[in-house]
Amino acid sequence: MHAIVVADPGDSSALVPTEVPDPEPGPGEVLVDVAASGVNFIDVYHREGRYPLPTPFVPGSEGAGTVAALGPGVADIAVGDRVGWQGVLGGYAQKAVIPADRAIPLPEGIDPEQAAAVLLQGLTAHYLATSTYAVQPGDDVLVHAAAGGVGLLLTQIVKLRGGRVIATVSTAEKEKLARDAGADEVIRYEGFAEAVRALTGGQGVHVVYDGVGAATFDDSLASLRPRGVLALYGAASGPVPPFDPQRLNSGGSLYLTRPTLAHYAATREELLARTGDVLGWVASGELKVHIGGRYPLADAKRAHDDLQGRRTTGKLLLIP
């Protein structure tokens, strides 16, 4: 089968199209014919070696397709079922082996491309807005990179929960996307802390959802009201350097958390509860999924370059 293999971590040239043997499902696993694979910053971190993995490996931690074979002991999934997954390595390929307890049944009305475009980022947006800081009606919320994959979904979920969204974007095109997703206010990154203060009567926001990292961290803290929460869920601009926790005190007894999806979908029950909400909203039209680009599997390098170069909006997919 065709797959993308990383033998030596590094820049996007480490993503090498390769012919590899078809995988076989083991006990408690299913083999899936991949219809689409999501492209995410976690894939970049794996490729770069920032999150080290044994090499060689097939990257890609999100996808969807049709079950082609069952391993021993799988009883609640059948060949021909449509499933999606996230958090399982090996999606940049024509076939992938998935633990059966991480396979997510796709409801009617959800096609595999939608699922591959929404699962990882939709679940991230879901846990951020419902658990890390549970948005309440009337809350002021700052969403960074609001025209990105997580940002567009997070903006919509915050609005579903009654929050007011202040969105940061870098271009006029991205501003339109953020406004179409429901953002109440859209600002640029330069001087955003001052803009946030002006838009909140000097109070600051209840929560900042920050997937940008180093470039926004200081002003994100400065955008919070007393006892506000900075949910630092990513580092697209690089990791945040060490800092003095006393800054949280002087800023107004602030909270800082560095959450990750694995800890918010640790059990199958929680995984299915969150995916039930997200896929239900997509099926009903309450949550719109924006696919910003579809690339042939062999063009994984170009997809990574476009993602890191901030030349994209919404979600990028690889199509085997």
Rank of each mutant, 00 (worst) to 15 (best):
E269M: 00
S13E: 11
T66H: 04
G292H: 07
G285F: 11
V32M: 09
L221I: 14
A183G: 10
P226D: 13
V74N: 05
V32H: 10
I110E: 09
T275A: 15
G293D: 03
V5M: 12
K174E: 02
V229W: 12
G109F: 14
I319E: 01
D140T: 13
A36Q: 02
S220T: 11
D299V: 12
G162V: 13
R294L: 02
G26N: 05
M1I: 03
P239N: 11
V165R: 09
T267M: 05
D277H: 10
Y255D: 10
G191R: 14
P320I: 11
D210A: 07
G26D: 08
A93W: 05
P56I: 03
D277K: 04
V165L: 03
P21H: 08
L261H: 09
Y255W: 13
L152E: 05
V240T: 08
A145V: 03
A147D: 02
S250P: 01
A215C: 04
E62M: 01
T216Q: 09
M1S: 12
G202W: 06
I157H: 09
A303E: 12
R197W: 01
L297P: 07
G204I: 10
A129N: 02
S223V: 09
L261G: 07
D139W: 12
A283C: 12
G191K: 14
R47M: 08
